[in-house]
């Protein structure tokens, strides 16, 4: 193996690793706050990417309508939950978030969609659409069962993944899509060529990691979110609105997922079901980080990306086998290092 190939593989690994890091981070974020293992993270990726790609072709993506439909359902849930004390203010607030927000997004999308929409607008619209979906997903699927075990939440999470993936096929079809690059600039250093896209990947990843770290470590709100994760009842007793924490976590996760999707869709063709595998690799990283540590997750994600790059070069057939087998020794070590605390609840 010569140095050029080595460097090239490393670069490739780090670029994909950075994406996995982003996903791993949002998985850690969601798990830490809601105890949900976010399998539908993959769908946030595909929705973000394919919404962006669809917008780039000048069409209105189906996800905008899905967001509105989910908002309507969420509105119903909110009304039902508040049926004992229906104040006008409460209804208005729910209507603004559940109906007004997605309606505005849909309206904007329909008004702005066209073949000459600037890329920045498309990106913003994609993020808004996916953010709405993420928010309502928590409201509809997870908030009613937020008190149950990690396991029940995990199974519900799988259910959401199935449904969203099915919708993905309806909206985007079985054909893969590619999106336009964020920037066409490129720098060549030695034998390596850095595209604007890959530099954007690095920059955004680092920025988000730092932001999350600051948010959770040093702000009152971040700490409130973490408190929710450790003890929901305790958090409520000290005045933290746990359902709001969950919604914020999902909102952040869906935006991060969508950003990752938008970052990779110019590099590789994405299909409606590609996100699942990409998301799972983010998982491998998140699990290595123990679902709690942001820096460790980021490092692990780079390792996963590099292992994937090298195994696709040397044993391309067994790429996935190697990446997913990587997780097993880590899981065993994790379990041994932190012996099970006996769960009192089912």
């Amino acid at each position: 193996m010569n140095t050029t190939i080595l460097l090239f593989l490393l670069q490739d690994g780090i670029t994909t690793g950075a994406i996995y890091a982003l996903l791993g981070l949002s998985l850690v974020l969601v798990f830490a706050v809601t105890r949900v293992i976010l399998i539908p993270q993959g769908e946030f990726i595909t929705y973000g990417a394919l919404t962006y790609a669809t917008l780039a072709t000048g069409n209105v993506p189906g996800t905008a309508r899905l967001a509105l439909a989910m908002g309507v359902v969420a509105f119903g849930f909110d009304l039902f939950a508040a049926r004992k004390s229906l104040h006008a203010r409460r209804i208005l607030r729910a209507a603004a978030v559940d109906l007004g927000f997605p309606l505005a997004v849909l309206g904007l999308t329909m008004a702005l969609a066209g073949s000459h929409t600037p890329i920045a607008v498309n990106i913003a619209l994609s993020l808004l659409i996916v953010a709405a979906i993420g928010l309502f997903l928590y409201r509809i699927a997870f908030q009613p069962i937020a008190h149950t075990s990690v396991l029940v939440l995990l199974i519900a999470s799988v259910g959401c993944h199935l449904a969203l993936q099915g919708f993905g096929l309806v909206f985007f079809g079985a054909e893969g899509l590619r999106g336009p690059t964020v920037s066409d600039a490129a720098v060549t250093i030695g034998s390596l060529r850095f595209t604007g896209q890959s530099i954007a990947v690095y920059a955004i990843t680092i920025a988000l990691i730092v932001a999350l770290w600051l948010f959770f470590g040093f702000t009152l709100y971040g700490k409130a979110l973490r408190a929710t994760a450790v003890n929901r009842l305790g958090a409520r007793l000290v005045g933290i609105r746990t359902s709001l924490s969950g919604q914020i976590a999902f909102l952040l996760a869906s935006v991060i997922g969508a950003i990752s999707g938008i970052l990779i869709v110019p590099i590789t063709t994405l299909y409606y079901d590609t996100g699942f595998l990409i998301g799972l690799k983010g998982f491998v990283a998140a699990i290595i980080g123990g679902l709690v540590s942001y820096p460790l997750t980021a490092v692990a994600a780079l390792v996963v990306g590099t292992v994937e790059a090298f195994s696709s070069f040397y044993a391309s057939n067994y790429k996935e086998v190697i990446v997913f087998t990587l997780i097993l020794p880590v899981l065993v070590l994790r379990s041994l290092a932190a012996p099970a605390v006996e769960e009192e609840k089912d």
Binding site: L328, R334, S335, A338
Partner: peptide, 15 residues
């Protein structure tokens, strides 16, 4: 594997 590591582990070797 303890807790939620277990289902995640099964997903991993399943794939």
């Amino acid at each position: 594997l303890s807790g939620h590591y277990l289902p995640l582990g099964t997903i991993a070797w399943g794939i």
